[in-house]
Nucleic acid binder design. Structure first.
Length: 151
DNA sequence: GCCAACGTTGGC
DNA sequence: GCCAACGTTGGC
């Protein structure tokens, strides 16, 4: 059982959008490491933090659940999509996604600044590593519990 | 295979 | 808007 952190920009797709939609394909990931996590490691039923980046108060805003195993991201085949990839074919898709399901919105966001302030306990958390920009990150079970306890 | 140039991410 | 860090591309 693994835990995860998934980033989005709230202007594009935030926790309230997910709440409204219920389940949503996590499309548009174009980073191999993040893809590999979704394709090779994520299992249905696992949980992830929804982290909001590039906004006024970056932090964790909600919890979601991995709703299924990975499948090819359809936007890679769509010429009109900003995520179109002309090197991808249906026979050999390059990009994968999972569906994610809304679990809950946190009572209050757990801000990046708070996580930073607890760098000692959260030692090794990928989010706090300098220069770490990965949009999908594993979170250890221990860190998961520690972070939720801050709510 | 190296590496410079370029593009993107994301906090501040 | 700035800039550090990282990933990708493409010439050689």
């Amino acid at each position: 059982m693994s835990f995860w952190l998934m980033k989005s920009e709230p202007d594009a797709f935030g926790i309230d959008d997910l709440k409204r939609r219920g389940t949503e394909p996590w499309s548009g990931v174009r980073n191999y490491q993040a893809r590999n996590f979704m394709r090779d490691r994520m299992r249905p039923g696992e949980r992830a933090f929804l982290y909001h980046s590039s906004c006024e108060a970056p932090g964790i805003y909600g919890v979601l659940e991995i709703a299924g195993t990975a499948y090819p991201d359809p936007t890679q085949f769509d010429r009109k999509s900003p995520y179109h990839d002309k090197a991808a074919t249906r026979e050999q898709p390059r990009w994968f996604l999972v569906d994610v399901k809304f679990v809950r919105k946190l009572e209050r966001p757990i801000l990046l600044s708070e996580l930073r302030a607890r760098e000692q306990e959260l030692h090794g958390l990928m989010l706090l590593r300098k220069g770490s920009r990965l949009s999908i990150q594993p979170v250890s079970a221990e860190h998961w519990d520690q972070i939720l306890a801050l709510e």
